[in-house]
Amino acid sequence: MIIVTDLSHKIGTAPILQDINMTLEKGGVTALIGPNGAGKSTLLSLIARLVPIQTGRITVDDLTIGACPTDVLARTLAILPQVIDTAPLLSVRELVGFGRYPYHKGRPTAEDHAKVDYALETFQLTPLADRRLETLSGGQRQRAQVAMTFAQDTDYILLDEPLNNLDIAASRSLMAILRDLAATHSRTIVIVLHDINYAAAYADQIVAMKSGQIVATGSPEAIVTDRLLQDVFQTDPKVHCLNGKMMVQV
């Protein structure tokens, strides 16, 4: 369970987040949505300890962000990093292997190798295992990174706008993988999404944010409504219901 209590954040004098209180139960896929500048990514970065907390408190299970040693947290919570283009010399297997680093600190055991193989298998990366990252397509690279987070074997996985730069096939396949991670591997997924339709189609729960505050929390059916979209995004698209899924006409 992720519990956020009285969280506020400023950059310079500009308030980014104001008094956020939020409880995310274990399990399922939670999508954070909201217009640009709503503070979604900052909230995610604070939970993932990428940015130090200024005021407020975040706990993940019984670990307090900021107080808990970072290498202990790395075995409970993973964030999908932005696409790594700084180290193009890595092979897929090497990248996925880094997911085991929190456990072996550079000296992998047989178990670690097995987990890496399992992750490669799960994400259909085995044929690509020895290819360099730079030779892969954007979708394949993204998949390799998700495999790395999977190999990290954490209960919680956070993703910051992972669909950026992905085409529709890669986007749908990634979202399906995330659903599967939640369903079959009982991982808890928190994902920042730009596109409400993906949130409506794949999330169990949506958290809508606006100007640094949480406006609404609930199931896609409850959140993706004409009124709420108008309120949060200041635009008035039509919302349809198709086969039980909400869809925004753009």
Partner: peptide, 21 residues
């Protein structure tokens, strides 16, 4: 430090994620 350097080379965010400061 060599293994930690491998992780640090991935960038600060990836390093934090893997439990390196």
């Amino acid at each position: 430090m060599r293994h930690r350097l491998d992780v640090l080379a991935l960038g600060p965010d990836a390093a934090i994620n893997l439990g390196e400061n």
